[in-house]
Every structure is written in C-alpha cells, then in structure tokens.
Design a protein around this nucleic acid. Structure first.
Lengths: 156, 156
DNA sequence: CCTAGTCCTTCCACCGACTGGAAGGTCAAG
DNA sequence: CTTGACCTTCCAGTCGGTGGAAGGACTAGG
C-alpha cells in the first residue's frame, strides 16, 4: 500500500504518517520509485497510534505503548501504569478547567452585557485585590497550550 | 521601573514581558542605556494580561480585552461576548476530557496490571472493532496541544 | 508520443505562548 | 578595578502536526 491507501485505512492524514515515520513510529520500506510502501503490520501500528492519540496519549507514550504492543512478553502492569498516569493528568486538567469555568461563569453572570461601559469582567481583571497576581502564572501555565486558536481541528 | 521590578510586581517572568512587548501588548519606553522602563500604566496592563491569561484567555483575546479595558466608552456586551465564547470553549474541552476519562477509566479498570502479558488496554488499541478509526482523528485533534509534556509548568 | 491529472517525494515555514541559553553591555557596591 | 547582578539581543527549541512550493512518478486518454 502507498501512503494514500494507509492514510485512508488508518484515518490519519498522509502528512501525519510521514511525520510518524520521521520520528520513528513506523518504518515503511521504499520502492524503486522512492514511494513508501506499507504492509499490514505498519498499517496496524498506525491504527494503534491513531487510537492511542485519540485517547490523548502523548506521542512518547504512544511509542512506549507501541513497543509494549509488539512485545509479546510484556507485563500488563507496565501498560496499566502508563494509562493510569495519563488518567491522572486528565483528571488534573479537568479539575483546573472546572475551576476556570466556575470563575468565568460568575463573571459572565454578573455582567449586564449592554451598551454601558460598566463591566465586572474588566473590573475583575484590572482591580487590585487583596490576593494579588502572585499565583496567576501557575494558573496560566496550567491552562497550557490547550487553546490553539489557529489550529484547524482544535476544539475551541 | 526596570523589567525586573515589573516582573516581580506582575508575577510574570521577564522573558514573558519581553515577549509581550514583542507582540505589542505593552510598549515600555527605553532609557538612554537601552533598558526598558515601565510606568504604572504598563504595569497595570501586564497585571491585567496576567489575570486574563490565568483565566485561560488566548493572547489575542487578551489584546482585545486590553483595548476594551483602555476604551472608556466600551460596551460591556463586547466584553461579555468574548468571555462567553471562552466559557463555551472551556465547556467543550471539559466535555471532551470527560469522554476520554470515562473511556480510559474503563480500560484501566479492566486491566489486571500484573506480570502477565494479557492486557485489555493494548487489545482495545489494536483490535479492529465494528466502528473503525474513522473518527479517531477528530478526537485526537480535540485533545489538541493540551498536553505539553516538556513544558516546565504545564499540568501533566 | 504527448498531455492532463493525480499521486508521490522533499524541504521549509508556521501555529501558541512562551522558555533556555549564549554572548555581550550596564550599573552599583566594595 | 573587579565582581556580580541586572539588562540587552538573537537564535533555537518545545508539541504535534499543517500548509504550501517545487518537482518526480504514474495512469488514462487522445
């Protein structure tokens, strides 16, 4: 199969598959014309990685999971540990987002949203409060790179 | 104030403040020695942006909010609209993460996590199911850049 | 054989929002 | 005069791709 075929079968864009080869997740052989050629094994690996990514595993986790997938003598404890760590990170992210949601919902609820300039949201962002900005940074980082606005398929 | 002072007062790293100048969020004046000099107004803007970022607003939202902050004749509806859009995006992210959490928790719960190779997590990632991978891509993108592993302060 | 169209290749640049580090200038204290 | 803290600019890297240009390979039709 050429890259277009595995792209269709795996549901991954060809660009992504080339990238996965670049970082060593798959190793398609090359034909005489320079085209990549994928066998069933490579296709399975792509599907595997696609699913792991869809569950939010990082690429390096995928690499690890892939090696465990191919290791018939793996211990399920190893896999479980990766998944549990990931689950924890999801929990932390949800908790942080919940915190933001509560905060923002309050602000939005208190804002009239009319033609007058008076706005509790702006006030909250600008007013010097008892508890200053000291912890703003951590929270800001906590949100992390989650909101890639410009990204085509990102949830915004 | 030099950059170190405003860094301390705003809670933002000096590097970040330079970056904010780079992208035009603040415009400190320069002294004869080339050092940036920040007055109260610039400090307030930095604090403002720091707070907005800590609520998860994107830089471009911050830029908009900042211009509304400085516009005394703004309409609170404009601010509210930005906040509501952001709130929606938070809700969507939470929903997506909840979906992943449920899925992962089931997988983890079903895995023995012992020394045997038998692992339902690996099975789920590799087995061809009735519903194939067709939607894996969207979900993968949905997770987005949220898990910047290498990032110092990112929630992981 | 030529052409059009589709597929494939590589390479480079870009996204967000910084962060790290190198190389070097400036300033205040001792 | 030196030390050290602070400041400057610039370049590169983060994560996981995505967009596009420039050009080679292949297939079908005339």
């Amino acid at each position: 199969m050429n890259i277009g075929d595995v792209a269709e079968r795996s549901g991954l864009p060809a660009k992504t598959i080339r990238y996965y080869e670049d970082i060593g997740l798959v190793r398609p052989v090359r034909g005489a014309n320079g085209y990549r050629h994928f066998d069933q094994t490579e296709l399975h690996k792509l599907v595997f990685v696609g699913r792991a990514r869809s569950l939010g595993f990082a690429i390096e986790d995928c690499r690890l999971l892939l090696s465990l997938y191919e290791d018939r003598s793996r211990e399920s404890a190893e896999v479980k540990a990766i998944a549990e760590t990931h689950l924890d990170s999801i929990d932390r992210k949800i908790a942080e987002l919940e915190r933001l949601r509560v905060c923002l919902r309050d602000l939005v609820a208190n804002c009239n949203g009319d033609t007058r300039p008076d706005c509790p949201i702006i006030d909250a962002l600008s007013t010097t409060r008892a508890e200053p900005v000291s912890r703003a940074r951590e929270a800001s980082q906590a949100w992390g790179r989650a909101n890639g606005r410009s990204h085509k398929n990102a949830i915004v």
